[in-house]
């Protein structure tokens, strides 16, 4: 008896990994949970945000000099998303951007709340922290444009 030989199936591959942060990422996220943004000074003297145990540009260990940065910063590049995907940082249309926090030398990736007309390279933004913070990069819920 003939059947449809094209057997097709959906496969859902899902797992929640447990990621140990180590001391440096751990401190950055701990500060974030407290509503503070910190960078760490690299061996070459720049302030790296978010903080890492090393400078990804040269592999050298970062120092133990921590520096308060933000909460305001500047957009260095951006893109506007009209239809946010499920699980995006914001439900309403928003921008992804690289934001260089005041006091930092390196921009970081995050979401920026609209309105769209206010989003521009060079626009000034301010960190918006989540109401309920649990120690992850999403404790910084997004940035908003400073009018």
């Amino acid at each position: 008896m003939a059947r449809d030989a094209d057997f097709v199936a959906r496969f859902h591959l899902a797992y929640t990994y447990k990621r140990s942060t180590g001391p440096v990422i751990g401190r950055f996220l701990t500060s974030l949970r407290e509503g503070r943004l910190e960078g760490v000074r690299t061996a070459s003297g720049e302030v790296l945000v978010p903080a890492r145990a090393y400078d990804p540009r040269d592999g050298r260990a970062t120092t133990d000099a921590w520096v308060d940065v933000g909460p305001e910063g500047t957009i260095t590049t951006w893109t506007w998303i009209d239809a946010p995907a499920a699980g995006a940082p914001l439900d309403a249309p928003f921008a992804w951007a690289l934001v260089r926090l005041d006091g930092a030398d390196t921009p970081m990736l995050h979401a920026v709340r609209g309105p769209r007309a206010a989003i521009a390279t060079g626009a000034r933004v301010r960190a918006v922290f989540a109401d309920h913070r649990e120690g992850g990069i999403r404790d910084l819920s997004c940035f908003e444009v400073i009018p």
Partner: peptide
């Protein structure tokens, strides 16, 4: 980066768009 970037969930097109804007 699984600590700072992947949890935000930017699509590859969004990242390409950041480069396009630059």
């Amino acid at each position: 980066d699984p600590y700072y970037e992947a949890p935000l969930g930017p699509s590859p097109m969004a990242l390409a768009a950041l480069q396009a804007r630059a």
